[in-house]
């Protein structure tokens, strides 16, 4: 049972310092599922997502198993101002050398940055910088995406773009977990993990 899950939580609590954000989380995530983590400000959405990505080992109690490779996109984009969009994409992909430059340019074109590939990122707006980070979604084939507020600073076109991208990932059998106040408008069955905050147990819907 556990082995077939991409990710499973058993009696997990997220504790930041002396404050318990959520507790007794039992949650299993399988391939092809789309999950929205929902909750008020300070309910622990970002903390939980970061914990899933392995960025908060000291804040976690309980048993949390991540059985797959994943792509994590946080509030911060990881985009460096002193590099061009293309260079940034190469850096973010890790082994950027393995990708053909044409493919990278194509990905930048898909996020609407065709004319900005060789532009320094510090000259771009926050939304454009975020699009550089999003271009990764078109290139890597990871079974699990963990996206923290993916729509921040993104315009209407961008939202449609991300929605299409996520839809594609789920249809291919991949999974997406994202935090957001509003659900994405997708023709997919989406499930919700609602965090009531104040250390209470989340509802799975």
């Amino acid at each position: 049972m556990l082995e077939s899950c991409l990710l499973s939580c058993k009696d997990v609590a997220v504790i930041r310092g002396a404050r318990c954000l959520l507790s007794s989380l039992d949650w299993h995530l399988h391939g092809g599922e789309l999950w929205q983590i929902q909750g008020d400000n300070g309910a622990g959405k970002t903390s939980l997502l970061r914990a899933l990505a392995g960025l908060a080992p000291q804040s976690i109690e309980g048993q949390l198993v991540v059985n797959s490779e994943f792509l994590f996109l946080g509030h911060k984009t990881g985009v460096k101002g002193d590099f061009t969009a293309l260079e940034n994409l190469k850096l973010q992909l890790g082994d950027g050398a393995h990708y053909q430059t044409d493919r990278l340019r194509d990905a930048l074109r898909q996020v609407g940055l065709a004319d900005y590939a060789d532009e320094f990122a510090y000259r771009m707006s926050a939304g454009q910088q975020r699009r550089i980070a999003l271009a990764r979604l078109f290139l890597v084939d990871m079974p699990l995406w963990l996206l923290d507020e993916p729509l921040t600073a993104i315009d209407v076109d961008g939202v449609a773009l991300i929605e299409a991208c996520i839809e594609d990932q789920v249809r291919r059998g991949g999974s997406v977990v994202y935090t957001s106040h509003q659900p994405l408008k997708l023709d997919l069955s989406s499930r919700t993990l609602y965090l009531p905050g104040k250390g209470q147990s989340p509802h799975v819907a």
Partner: peptide, 8 residues
């Protein structure tokens, strides 16, 4: 990449 944290 997989890891487990056990409650102590």
């Amino acid at each position: 990449m997989a890891w487990t944290w056990f409650h102590r």
